[in-house]
Write a protein that binds this DNA or RNA. Structure first.
Lengths: 148, 148
DNA sequence: TATAAAGTATATAGATTTAGTAGTCTTTAT
DNA sequence: ATAAAGACTACTAAATCTATATACTTTATA
């Protein structure tokens, strides 16, 4: 399961994605709109900023905005920044690899082999889906709900 | 990430799968072979037994064995029994569904839509892969390592 | 039939992680 | 000068996970 941190991060990026091109958004506004604890969101946005995803402006009239086009920000990257694991086993993770202590031979481990496949399948979707795609899906879903 | 509980469960089932058709195996033997804390494994095997995957025999000469053919036991089922989540979001889980508190409209949520896709991809592999398949993969990997 | 081997069941402790809060500092517009 | 806003660090509370402990039941067999 993704942590709340990761979920909040994606939510915030989607909101800022919708706002792309306009004035920066204040943390408090995002927090209120998305029902995210403000202080928690503060930390998360800081991480996203330090990872190069966000531009921030201090002082009165300041706030956050995307530094890149929403099309360029891919979910896999967000998960990695916020520490949300993509792989289901540490021995299969590309960015957070760790050997399984109990495992005798990693190279011939059948379990590992299966979960590498699972990781590849998930990763494919997550690297192909951008914040812009998420917004587009939202629009498509809303439209299909509103029957004309 | 899968919990150790889930990992140990799969490992134990694979060992018992290799032993399928023979005498039941003692917990202590499985624990020793797979480097799993015995008392912890005890609880796990009990869960697998109560879920109908294992046959157990008490008393001297007792132990555990698979109640079904290893081909019939699929990884998705094991994850579910041991509480290992397949979905990355609770609102997308088939067996452990929970509404996302911060979410305003689940039906039009683009994030949810993406992670449903991820779940479907993972689930497909995990319902198509049995304990027997894991064992077979192990053999294939071992063979390809041993160059003749 | 006593004993040891083995599973059953529940409780609990310890460690780790997650989620959230608090407080102080820095920058900037007005 | 002041207020608005982000930056940074520290801390706490709760939840979860991993593991251990203890007591009980069943069964083979000497």
């Amino acid at each position: 399961m993704l942590s709340k941190k990761t979920r909040y991060a994606i939510k915030a990026l989607v909101v800022m994605g919708k706002n792309f091109g306009n004035e920066p958004m204040q943390i408090s506004r995002i927090a209120a709109e998305e029902h995210i604890p403000k202080k928690f969101l503060e930390q998360i946005l800081l991480d996203l900023r330090n990872a190069g995803l966000l531009y921030s402006k201090k002082g009165a009239g300041g706030g956050y905005s995307l530094i890149k086009d929403p099309k360029e920000i891919v979910l896999a990257q967000v998960l990695r920044i916020t520490g949300g694991p993509i792989a289901l086993l540490p021995c299969v993770s590309l960015n957070f690899y760790q050997r399984c202590e109990e495992c005798m031979n990693e190279e011939t481990c059948g379990i590992r082999d299966v979960f590498m496949e699972v990781r590849n399948a998930s990763l494919k979707i997550l690297t192909e889906t951008s914040i812009a795609d998420v917004i587009e899906r939202e629009n498509t879903l809303s439209d299909s709900k509103t029957v004309i």
